[in-house]
Write a protein that binds this DNA or RNA. Structure first.
Lengths: 181, 181
DNA sequence: CGTGGATGTTAGTCATCATTAACGTAACCG
DNA sequence: CGGTTACGTTAATGATGACTAACATCCACG
């Protein structure tokens, strides 16, 4: 949806409470209250947005892992997916890890669940690659690598995406390898 | 200042616009407008907060680098400083890389300047360690490692700080080494 | 044709704030 | 003591903003 794209850009730039319904309307060429024909309210819009992102990330990860022949390739595929997403949709990534606190309770739990499942895809693969490494350590390492990969919005423009993607991948792999010891 | 600490916690949790002056007052035991005896306004409070953080980070980095005998130790010292800060003041870290957009223009430029200087401390050290590696690549790698180190607020509770600190350090070093190729 | 549903528009309404005013109080200093 | 300074308090005040109402339009389908 075009509305969600525009809202994501605005939320990423100024934060959920820093953006008005009128702002979002203006960004899609309509004015303000027209959005209530599509969303029941501002919080519902945010809920739908985060739910959509979480679902896409988790579904893509699950598909990639089951399609991979072994853990080594699975990790590569996970990295590819996350890097593509981070480079292709920086606003969505930004909102995804900043605005969960503003989602009201029914949806909040669901989003957390999907995020947890996403992390567990990574941890499962890593466990196979580094048996004997305690899962909490792998979980912490996974979060750290997410932070590394999602740094993209901050370093915008330092490198072209064609150079950024392999750099991020190499750094992430090295970091994981080191974390496995 | 106790006010800045409380405000940082609130801003980190709900975002600048999600926190009212009254909220901050309540968090320090006074009520609302009393804060105007200490700050000229909400934006000024944020400005002072980010300026203070940027100054501390930059000053600490500069001191550590000049005290180090060589680039190898300098990088270690930089990592130590950033990890201590990230683990010790997660709210400050969070606000520092989320809320720059809400700082009004006089202070904004100054904060950006300090942040740039901070990054350049890292890039200078890394350049010495990896001569021949183009600075934009080192800058991008530095931002990526900041993302890795600052992931702490997300993985809160996965590992105790005594385990988290060496893990982050090892991952960051490995990532930098890989980026240097 | 015409009628209903989807989608917009503009003008309220009602809260929530940031900020200021007007007014204490208590310590400190001459 | 008299008065200034530092710091709080509780009422305005004035914007801004989410959401609703009342009122078009337009298009599909009978």
């Amino acid at each position: 949806m075009e509305i969600l794209e525009a809202a994501a850009r605005l939320f990423a730039a100024r934060g959920f409470h820093g953006v008005s319904i009128e702002d979002i309307g203006a960004a899609v060429g309509t004015s303000g209250p027209a959005l209530y024909r599509h969303f029941s309210g501002k919080e519902a819009l945010l809920s739908e947005m985060l739910l959509d992102i979480s679902e896409r990330l988790h579904a893509s990860a699950a598909a990639r892992v089951t399609a991979a022949p072994d853990a080594e390739h699975a990790l590569d595929a996970l990295l590819t997916g996350q890097i593509e997403f981070a480079l292709g949709h920086p606003a969505l990534i930004t909102v995804h890890d900043r605005e969960l606190g503003n989602v009201p309770e029914p949806a909040r739990r669901q989003i957390r669940r999907l995020q947890r499942l996403y992390v567990e895809e990574w941890v499962t693969v890593l466990s196979e690659l580094h048996p004997g490494c305690p899962p909490p350590r792998l979980r912490a390492a996974t979060h750290a690598v997410f932070g590394l990969l999602n740094s993209t919005p901050h370093s915008a423009g330092e490198l072209p995406p064609e150079a950024m993607a392999p750099l991020l991948r190499a750094m992430a792999r090295a970091a994981f390898t080191e974390a496995g010891n």
